[in-house]
Design a protein around this nucleic acid. Structure first.
Lengths: 152, 152
DNA sequence: CTCGGAAAGTTGGAGTTTCAACTAACTGCG
DNA sequence: CGCAGTTAGTTGAAACTCCAACTTTCCGAG
């Protein structure tokens, strides 16, 4: 016998789902309109910029951005065409490649970051009380843990 | 001067983002493996099944599922091909169409629902304390309100 | 050394989403 | 009435994602 959700649970669940969709849409739209970037582009730029030598192995980057290898590979194709990253062969492991941030990639990240942070603030951080926001973050962290995901 | 996020805020934000991605992936995968449905399919089936006469105007359905008209149109194409819905011309407004749930659509929804609810429980509802889950839902609701979204 | 399996990454095609352009029908104002 | 502007919905192409198959290289046991 299925244990259905009660009315309140149903509402929480749907709110969570709807908020995700609308927020993610909004962030993408903001980034897109202002700088022609997608969320995926942006996350890759961020990860690379935070890495030593502005570079990361394809697999590590895929894992960090919660993306499949295949998806990342196509994604890096596009970003390479756009001039934001370069592929550099890894000499230690000849199967491997690094995705390396270019100056152009850095520049667009620097240009886009303030506007992205702004929209995260406007739509989430500053909308909630600090307690509510922390609760949202902590609940998310618990859910991640339960799935065995690294919180990094 | 950009007001960056502090360390804790950064972590909450990233946790939220990661949890969304992983959870949504997981729900899709569960539905896909068990019944060959996508989340989008499932939500449409749910909405239609909850509507009078198992039918909804295309625009209303698009709005309810937070999808663009174009996306919904393609989506309904596929579901019509699969036999889960039908398009029925609207006689009042000759521009309009109803998406109507078929018996086959109802059947697959009935088959898929328990397994979907199960996975929502397993991955969210039963993972958190009732307080944490409520906090997640309420925060989401607040964010929706702030975006002017109807909580229905 | 060498061979089988695992890991890194890419590829192509099919499926999905987005965007802009389009048709057809409705609405209301002069 | 009659036509300008809106609304409903579709379409096709381009962008993106997913999946399965593939190549190359690495690793470890014998």
């Amino acid at each position: 016998m299925t244990q259905w959700l009660d009315e309140a649970q149903q509402q929480h669940w749907r709110a969570w789902l709807a908020a995700n969709t609308l927020l993610l849409d909004a962030f993408s739209r903001d980034l897109q309109e202002a700088h022609g970037l997608t969320m995926a582009d942006y996350e890759i730029l961020v990860r690379l910029s935070e890495s030593a030598d502005w570079r990361m192995r394809m697999s590590d980057l895929a894992e960090a951005t919660l993306s499949s290898r295949s998806r990342l590979s196509h994604q890096i194709d596009r970003m390479e065409r756009a001039g934001f990253v370069e592929r550099v062969a890894c000499t230690d492991d000849k199967r491997g490649y690094f995705a390396v941030l270019t100056d152009a990639g850095w520049d667009i990240l620097v240009a886009a970051a303030p506007c992205h942070v702004m929209s995260v603030r406007e739509r989430i951080v500053d909308v909630l009380t600090p307690e509510e926001f922390a609760a949202l973050g902590n609940a998310s962290k618990r859910l991640l843990d339960h799935m065995g995901a690294d919180p990094a």
